[in-house]
């Protein structure tokens, strides 16, 4: 799928932190459904949404399911575009190193392992939003 898919481009816009509300987990659930149906799916993380991708989440003490390992399965679902807004990350004192290292394997490049997270600027976010056929906000 991805670029050569002539279906519609779906982008999931995530702007909430995980656990405090159900939005992040619900978004991920719908992403997996859309990807299982082989749609061209990408994810955008802005505002507090960037907190969804921090590494080392451990929910044992709060009695909730830690759903963050599922982000690492997105590559298996051919979801290879996870856009993270640089400004949102910086405003929160985070860098790329604080996020999970997520990868996908490029079938067209001898299954080379490539990074899924793409750091983009706020200006690039504007353009990206305009390029989508369907936007789903969480």
């Amino acid at each position: 799928m991805s670029e050569e898919n002539d279906g519609k481009k779906f982008m999931f816009v995530n702007r909430r932190a995980p656990y405090g509300t159900i939005y992040a987990q619900e978004s991920l659930e719908v992403v997996l459904i859309a990807a299982a149906l082989e749609q061209d799916v990408s994810l955008l993380f802005i505002d507090d949404g960037v907190f969804q991708l921090t590494k080392g989440q451990n929910t044992e003490g709060v009695g909730m399911k830690n759903f963050s390992p599922a982000y690492a399965a997105l590559g298996d679902y051919d979801v290879s575009k996870l856009y993270v807004e640089k400004e949102s990350l910086e405003e929160r004192g985070l860098t790329l190193d604080d996020l999970q290292h997520l990868t996908w394997e490029d079938e067209d490049d001898d299954w080379a392992e490539k990074d899924s997270i793409r750091l983009i600027s706020r200006d690039e976010v504007k353009k990206l939003i305009e390029e989508q056929d369907v936007l789903l906000s969480f």
């Binding site: 997996l32 299982a36 082989e38 390992p69 298996d76």
Partner: peptide, 15 residues
């Protein structure tokens, strides 16, 4: 155990 999800059939087949 690793990903906390049950994979869809397409993903399972590939994996």
């Amino acid at each position: 155990e690793e990903y906390q999800i049950a994979p869809a059939v397409r993903v399972l087949t590939k994996a």
